[in-house]
């Protein structure tokens, strides 16, 4: 029986393959206030949190796909529940990357994509949001977002490079 792909949190991203989309469609989803244009992630769906705003409609908005590393770290020890990991397997450290989105002027935390090593990272590098798998159980593949360096194999830029169409932004 194949597992059902389900976002770990509903409504935080789209294009995770749940509906058969490709990776290029992946976007984090926030909301924007119609009155003051403030953007929220995680999404606010009821009230705008800008204290100077009279209050507007909050509508869904995709966040920038790319940003620059604000900071990064890793988890050398197994995090406690509700993080899910197989206690039978040796814990593999996982990178955590905080990414500054220029247009939204906000920082969003996420796990680094599998294969992103700490030594590959530096503050200021460009990364992009890509779909990822958080964990699987008997019936469900829980999907999430990951940050991946642009210009790495599999990224949109690397594919463009391969076609000789564009260089990596310095």
């Amino acid at each position: 029986m194949s597992r059902k792909r389900t976002p770990v949190v509903a409504g935080w991203f789209t294009g995770d393959g749940t509906d058969g989309e490709g990776e290029a469609d992946f976007r984090l989803l926030g909301t924007r206030c119609s009155a003051c244009a403030s953007v929220f992630f995680p999404r606010e769906d009821v009230f705008c949190r800008n204290p100077g705003c009279p209050g507007g409609e909050l509508t869904e908005v995709p966040l920038s796909r790319r940003g620059r590393i604000w900071s990064y770290t890793d988890s050398r020890y197994r995090p406690p529940a509700p993080y899910v990991s197989d206690p039978e397997l040796e814990w593999q450290p996982c990178t955590l990357i905080a990414v500054e989105l220029e247009a939204e002027r906000m920082v969003v935390l996420g796990q680094g994509a599998p294969g992103v090593a700490l030594a590959d990272l530096a503050v200021g590098m460009e990364v992009e949001a890509v779909p990822g798998v958080l964990n699987e159980d008997t019936e469900t593949t829980w999907t999430t977002w990951h940050w991946r360096l642009t210009g790495t194999p599999g990224s949109a830029e690397a594919e463009a490079d391969a076609k000789g169409a564009a260089g990596v932004v310095a």
Binding site: P79, C94, L109, V123, L134
Partner: peptide, 25 residues
């Protein structure tokens, strides 16, 4: 609950982010 479930982000993970940021800036 979410930061643990979705990211496994413990308190020391945040301390690590702040420390790395200071090193860079």
């Amino acid at each position: 609950w979410l930061r643990f479930r979705v990211l496994g982000a413990t308190n020391p993970a945040y301390f690590g982010l702040y420390a790395r940021r200071r090193m860079a800036v």
